[in-house]
């Protein structure tokens, strides 16, 4: 964004609005911070203040990354991890929305299921990863299961909260017409719940990625988590950082995609940020 504004050599000088100027100066500050942090890091390591076994030279990371890309290892393992996370997220979304709707709509279901929900919610789901490895095997199955289990709760909890948060006045409009339960649900409660559901999905998609990685840490022969563990075991610290950099980019891309989807679907709701 800055690049295009600065690089355009158009004679009719386009004046930047105050808001745009603010964005440009914010970006400049962020970039400055980043460059100086990396410079400090490089200095600390090259002057031997911090051991290279702990921190690699920042300048050594691009080479590591390049070799990962060249060998094709990066793409293969990235796709594996993304597939696991996506599958887990999809399963969690399906179960979370359906179960959330049942719990919010039917008191019986709520009374029966709620105690288990609270018990499960207070338990750290990551602790299930070794068990899920035993149950679902060494392959993709166990990673998908971990991703699904830990991304389920944000979706479920937010769906329930969203469906229950409906203003009674809005429901009265439908009820006064003799609308049935299904109409009330589809025409008022569900759209009303969407901002909550979206907040849940945004959290869940990151949890799914985390779940897939943890699943791979516990035991696997492929995926970015496997790459990290392998590089770690070989004391290939630049290799670890190369994968972390990739994860950073992937995470940012997913976050951007969720924001984009939110703007499309929730055009009517003011942004929460």
């Amino acid at each position: 964004m800055t690049a295009t504004t600065e690089a355009s050599p158009l004679p009719p000088k386009r004046r930047l609005s105050n808001a745009q100027r603010q964005v440009v100066s914010d970006l400049a500050l962020t970039a400055t911070l980043c460059v100086s942090a990396i410079a400090t890091w490089q200095a600390l390591v090259s002057f031997g203040i911090v051991s290279r076994l702990v921190l690699p030279l920042p300048s050594s990371i691009p080479a590591s990354l390049a070799s990962l890309i060249d060998s094709g290892a990066l793409l293969d393992n990235l796709l594996t991890t993304l597939a696991e996370a996506a599958a887990g997220f999809t399963i969690a979304t399906g179960i979370g929305l359906a179960l959330g709707a049942l719990i919010a709509e039917f008191r019986v279901v709520e009374r029966i299921v709620y105690p288990y929900l609270i018990a499960l919610q207070t338990m750290p789901k990551i602790a299930l990863a070794p068990l899920l490895l035993v149950w679902f095997g060494f392959g993709l199955g166990s990673k998908i299961a971990v991703a699904a289990v830990i991304s389920l709760f944000p979706i479920l909890v937010n769906t329930i909260a969203g469906l229950k948060s409906c203003e009674p006045g809005r429901l009265d409009v439908l009820r006064a017409l003799g609308a049935g339960r299904w109409d009330c649900f589809r025409l008022v409660k569900l759209p009303n719940a969407l901002p909550f559901v979206f907040a849940g999905l945004s959290t869940a998609v990151m949890f799914a990625l985390t779940g897939a990685l943890v699943g791979e840490f516990v035991g696997s022969t492929q995926g970015l988590g496997y790459l990290i563990v392998q590089a770690n075991n070989l004391m290939d610290i630049p290799g670890v950082f190369a994968v972390l950099a990739v994860l950073c980019v992937v995470g940012t891309a997913i976050f951007g995609a969720m924001q984009f989807a939110r703007r499309k679907v929730l055009y009517w709701a003011p942004n929460e940020e």
Binding site: E167, G169, R170, D172, V173, L187, V188, P191, N192, L194, W268, A269
Partner: peptide
């Protein structure tokens, strides 16, 4: 008493 329009 309140308009109760659906904002979406």
């Amino acid at each position: 008493q309140d308009a109760n329009l659906m904002p979406w």
